[in-house]
């Protein structure tokens, strides 16, 4: 059941850079996938040689293995003029794809895991924020999230209270909108696209759409890689490996509201691939 649901979502399987390195063997939902061709004309086949559908969106190559795929969501900010689009490559993590998304939605860990960058003691308090499941497109949204950050972005000069919004348009995608230091009226967009290799291993493809014309590309990518790689050792050391949907094993508080809303939304959809749906 969990696999049947997951098969009908679209997943990132490659980007321009990875295709330029030549054909690639990878995995999706436990099965082997072969990726070849060019970025303009990618060729994706499953283990039996069946050609899989592809589409190019948000600077990545997407595919699906399902018979009735749900339409791929949009991130309209990606089309706004003036934004710089920054694909950041891929990082492999031995964790549930859902745990990678959940961690991305979490702010309370900033002072301890992204110390002196996204947070610092004693500024650990999480102010109340708002979480909702928006009915019109069935997405999880967390809004009015605020957190004090010593060095919020590559373009930030010092400590600021950063405003955040989170959006979960699909079980393995999370979008973050945050205060854009050089352009206070706009928001930077930072996204992770998670390719579920199996229920316990994933490839994470970060992607950004920023208002920042000054910072060199390499610095932008490395800032994002620095942040994500600080999370990697956390993600590989949470137990159980699969994301528990029953909170019996954990003690969520108000600051975990986004995490709980995400799990509730997964439960409602039956999106159990990478989750522990049963009671232990």
């Amino acid at each position: 059941m969990s696999l049947a649901y997951a098969r009908n979502d679209w997943y990132v399987i490659a980007d321009r850079n990875s295709l330029e390195q030549g054909p690639r063997r990878t995995r999706l939902l436990g099965d082997e996938i072969h990726v070849s061709g060019s970025y303009a004309h990618p060729v994706i086949k499953d283990a039996s040689g069946r050609m899989l559908p592809t589409q190019i969106k948000f600077d990545h190559v997407w595919t699906t293995v399902g018979d009735r795929p749900r339409p791929l969501f949009d991130i309209p900010e990606g089309n706004e003029p003036g934004r710089r689009l920054v694909p950041c490559g891929m990082v492999r993590v031995k964790c549930s794809p859902l745990r990678a998304v959940e961690n991305f939605l979490d702010i309370a860990h900033f002072p301890f895991v992204h110390t002196d960058v996204l947070g610092a003691e004693p500024y650990t308090e999480v102010e109340p924020y708002k979480v909702e499941i928006r009915e019109q497109n069935d997405e999880v949204w967390a809004t009015k999230v605020k957190f004090f950050q010593p060095l919020a972005a590559k373009s930030a000069a010092g400590g600021i209270t950063t405003d955040y919004e989170y959006r979960v348009p699909a079980p393995t995608t999370a979008v973050l909108y945050k205060t854009c230091p050089p352009k206070p009226e706009a928001q930077d967009v930072i996204t992770i696209f998670v390719q579920p290799r199996s229920e316990t291993e994933c490839d994470v493809w970060p992607w950004m759409a920023l208002y920042d014309d000054d910072t060199p590309y390499a610095d932008l990518v490395q800032f994002q890689q620095m942040i994500f790689l600080q999370d990697r050792s956390i993600l590989e050391n949470q137990r159980p490996i699969k994301l528990p949907l029953d909170p019996r094993m954990e003690i969520p508080t108000r600051s975990d509201l986004t995490s709980v809303a995400y799990r509730r939304w997964l439960k409602k959809r039956g999106a159990f691939y990478g989750a522990l749906a049963e009671t232990l």
């Binding site: 949907l245 909170p247 508080t253 108000r254 509201l257 509730r264 049963e278």
Partner: peptide, 17 residues
Amino acid sequence: IEAMEVSCSLGPADVMV
């Protein structure tokens, strides 16, 4: 109490709040 609300919004595995 808020933590109770947060947990209840998810509930046990076989309940859908």
